[in-house]
């Protein structure tokens, strides 16, 4: 039972990161129909912003996390004005935008390799501090990750459900033209979308960095498969779906190693498990658990 609980908690930790990253893919898709393959690099930039504050400037992790969220949000807005908007203004097709996101991903990763090098990075945190909660053992970093992850998920859910901005974003995702005719300031909402995406990607980057302890510029790219699996499982374009999908994929990946299940799979198959979840979701419910290309 302890093993099961440990795996579920581990799954919730990784799943919360998949969920945060997944929202960052779902939101731009719902509002702008952009499948952003550069989301992995947004996440990595978050982790490196925190390195700048935590390691170079010797700031604490709280400050580093805020800086990461702010830094990636600023980068997202910058890319909206300097990259995505000019492409949209030239009426780039969905396929063009998809390819552009691939290109952006490669450029961002290359820049990070040049600036930050591929040397592994770590934060100044005590990774050996362990808390035993009813037999479930968590490091300080994991505890921070799970708490922050769920606080962020709750805030995002509240943003969409309770605030005017959230409701307007949902309206925009339902029908872009109708929302514009109804007087919604679509440009402003698009900027807000990228800010939310950036904040969540920055947070996901820091949490993943804490979870791994050591990371390099490929970190975010390595997360893309389970994150896309989460988005598709939850329903492409559905932020709530990405939340649910992220948690489910995280738990599925961890539970696949549970010894009670025919001895459990080897952990090297965990990424394959994410892929199987993705394929099953497409076969059984192509629109996803909560999706119909809507925000929520």
């Amino acid at each position: 039972m302890t093993e099961f609980l440990q795996l579920v908690v581990d799954g919730l930790i990784t799943g919360s990161i998949f969920a945060l990253a997944g929202i960052g893919i779902s939101l731009p898709y719902a509002i702008l129909r952009i499948v952003n393959f550069a989301q992995g690099e947004y996440i990595t930039y978050g982790a490196y912003c925190a390195v700048l504050v935590n390691i170079v400037w010797r700031g604490n992790m709280a400050l580093a996390t805020v800086a990461a969220m702010g830094g990636v949000a600023a980068l997202s807005v910058l890319l909206e004005f300097g990259f995505w908007r000019p492409l949209r203004n030239r009426r780039a097709s969905h396929f063009t935008l998809l390819l552009a996101s691939f290109g952006l991903s490669l450029v961002m990763r290359g820049v990070l390799f040049v600036i930050g090098s591929s040397n592994p990075r770590t934060y100044r945190v005590n990774v050996f501090q362990v808390y035993d909660i009813g037999g479930v053992r968590l490091s300080q970093s994991e505890l921070i990750a799970v708490v922050l992850g769920f606080v962020a998920i709750t805030l995002v859910a509240l943003l969409f459900a309770k605030t005017h901005t959230g409701r307007t974003m949902r309206a925009l995702s339902d029908d872009h033209s109708l929302a514009a005719v109804a007087g919604v300031n679509t440009d402003r909402l698009i900027v807000i979308t990228w800010i939310v995406t950036g904040v969540l990607a920055g947070l996901a980057g820091v949490l993943q960095g804490l979870l791994q302890n050591s990371f390099d510029p490929n970190m975010g790219g390595n997360l893309l498969l389970p994150v896309f699996a989460a988005v598709i499982l939850g329903g492409v374009g559905s932020a709530y779906g990405a939340l649910a999908g992220g948690l489910l994929v995280g738990i599925a990946m961890q539970l696949s190693t549970w010894s009670v299940l025919w001895g459990g799979l080897s952990p090297i198959w965990q990424q394959v498990v994410a892929f199987v979840v993705l394929v099953l979701a497409l076969l059984i419910k192509p629109q996803g658990l909560l999706g119909q290309a809507r925000l929520a």
């Binding site: 795996l7 581990d10 990161i17 994991e142 490929n218 190693t257 952990p267 090297i268």
Partner: peptide, 20 residues
């Protein structure tokens, strides 16, 4: 006997397996 992907997003389940 257990192997792992050096780029795995989490090493907790790998560690749990290895100490069995």
């Amino acid at each position: 006997t257990e192997s792992w992907d050096p780029n795995a997003p989490s090493f907790d389940s790998i560690a749990q397996k290895l100490v069995g």
